[in-house]
Amino acid sequence: MQLAYIENLFSQQLINEEEYIALKEQHKQPVSLYTDLHILLYAGILLLATGLGILIYKNIDSIGHGIVVAIIALLCAGCFIYCFKKSHGFSPVKQLAINPFIDYILLLGCLLLLTLTGYLQYQYNLFGNHWGLATFIPMVLLFIAAYYFDHLGVLSLAITNLAAWLGITVTPLHILKSNDFSNIHLIYAGIILGIGLFVIAYISEKRNFKAHFSYMYRNFSVHLSYVCLLAGMFHYERFYFIWFLFSAGLTAFMWWYALHIKSYYFFVVAVLYGYIAIGYVLSRLIFVWKDETSFYAYALWFILSGIALIRVLIHYNKIIKQDAGIQQ
């Protein structure tokens, strides 16, 4: 805080003497490099894992498969042994890391584990024709690592592997591109996974078992469910209204839930996905006219609905703020 502000606040008796001294002391505090050093470590881990990936790919014939597997396995084992030795061990509640370096070594170990299983399956056909096992085993290991070492990044890797095991890509840049949503089984799998993840989030909170993981589960759950429902609506034109009803149902639930947990994020997510669903249905109805009028109606719909939604968001922003006791 600026010195002038500190003096002012103290002269107005808005802060006590202890706080006044602490705030003045803060000025003498060293500059924190925490964020910068963490980004540096993270970038280093990603570069190293990428470099190793390319190295293996390019030299696969010249290095020799055995040596490649041995190097990756050794590195991977080294990372996990280091983490086991240095970490707190398992705890059902959130833990603060003893040393932030452990988090990054664990991440490197998990990325190497994924490379290793993929490589073993391709080269040695380790899991035979049970392709699912090549995804299932690393997924289980990643879940164990995430829960044991209390690592959100590894948990997200585990969830993406769980989705891949069911045949769905949930990485942010590939969710729309890599999935074949014309396959009805994929849509159903996505919806079931979405519901499952939501239930896990609920249980985690209810039982206070890694309750801080619940946000991650819920986030995946909501986006996956909405993307699958919208995909169902876009691809199955004959039954699009049924899919729309499910989307509307989910929006109503998420609306209630966001207000219940006072979450701006989930409220916005529900509103925007719901808007897309309604927009799609209305655009289908409007384009039935098939003349110039439909363009006017289309433009008017987006302008008016946009304004209406803006008013709704402003209204609920106020309500959530009041309910959460956030002072203006």
């Binding site: 963490h38 993270y42 881990i45 990603l46 894992a49 990428t50 190793l52 990936g53 390319i54 293996i56 790919y57 696969i60 991440l107 998990c110 990325l111 994924l114 490379t115 299983t117 993929g118 490589y119 391709y122 080269q123 392709w131 699912g132 090549a134 995804t135 690393p138 959100l152 990044g153 590894v154 997200s156 890797l157 993406t160 592997n161 989705a163 891949a164 045949g167 769905i168 890509t169 949930v170 990485t171 942010p172 840049l173 590939h174 890599s178 999935n179 991650m216």
Partner: peptide, 30 residues
């Protein structure tokens, strides 16, 4: 960090006749 980890290390759909290095498994950007 979590978002990047998901993107970089997340698995894509396994394919029956995949070629190693085809980009379908985690490899941190490879």
């Amino acid at each position: 960090e979590t978002l990047i980890s998901m993107q970089v290390g997340g698995k894509h759909l396994p394919q029956q006749n995949m070629q190693f290095g085809g980009g379908s498994s985690g490899g941190a950007g490879a």
